[in-house]
């Protein structure tokens, strides 16, 4: 079954390429606050000249999946067309009390927690409809979390391509090496989505892995 669906996936990707119209659907996944929307915005700004989503230092800012269709990325003399899917941050726990320290009122915090939980469910459901994933991690944090393991396990089980993005390398405490050591079987690209560092390497990686 897995083999068949993987073959079918490849076949439709190939047909799409021949006719040059099918975009590759790439999900941007990861825990809250790692910089997924910042990265989605940067990719879309670099290649389509606009923003998609709101960025904030309060976790669970993105609570609905957002798709920007047909973003064409040029690499060398070739190109790849992507649908960029920015997803709500994945979590195994959501406590409305955590939002109070950001100055939210109790009712607002409770509403945010409920929407955040719904957002997680939507993110997980989208895993079934993607051609590949950019798994974003915050390079200043411990990479070995259940959320990261679950995303990686699901991509492996579905035999779908994945790139790990080690974000926030502009920060002094960033340690992309930790991420590389934690997931040695995967390609890790260290970037700063905020500053735009190393984006060319990421675009090369996207072209190599998802085309």
């Amino acid at each position: 079954m897995g083999m068949w669906s993987s073959l079918r996936g490849r076949f439709s990707l190939w047909v799409g390429k021949i006719f040059g119209r099918r975009s590759v659907k790439i999900g941007i996944y990861g825990p809250p606050n790692v910089g997924k929307t910042t990265l989605a915005n940067r990719i879309i700004r670099d290649w389509a000249g606009e923003d998609v989503g709101v960025v904030s230092d309060i976790p669970h800012e993105t609570r609905r999946v957002k798709r920007r269709k047909d973003v064409k990325i040029n690499v060398d003399r070739s190109s790849i067309k992507l649908d960029i899917v920015d997803t709500p941050g994945l979590a195994t726990k959501i406590d409305f009390r955590d939002f109070l320290s950001y100055g939210l009122e109790e009712e607002e915090a409770k509403k945010r927690a409920k929407e955040a939980a719904e957002g997680v469910i939507e993110s997980i459901r989208w895993l079934d409809d993607l051609d590949g994933v950019l798994l974003v991690m915050d390079a200043t944090e411990d990479p070995y979390t259940q959320v990261n393991i679950t995303v990686i396990g699901n991509m492996e089980a579905r035999r779908l391509p994945m790139l790990i993005v080690s974000n926030k390398i502009d920060l002094p405490t960033a340690s992309p090496v930790k991420i590389i050591e934690a997931f040695p079987q995967h390609t890790v690209v260290p970037i700063s989505a905020l500053k735009g560092n190393n984006m060319d390497t990421l675009y090369d990686g996207i072209y190599e892995h998802f085309r």
Binding site: L90, A91, T92, K93, I94, F96, K110, A113, K114, A117, E118, V120, I121, I124, R125, L127, Q146, V147, I149, T150, I152, G153, N154, E156, A157
Partner: peptide, 19 residues
């Protein structure tokens, strides 16, 4: 758990989230 079960567990957990 299997990866698919982990994802389902997270989903089921999110359904139960409350104060």
């Amino acid at each position: 758990l299997m990866p698919e079960e982990e994802a389902k567990l997270i989903e089921a957990t999110m359904v139960e989230i409350s104060p």
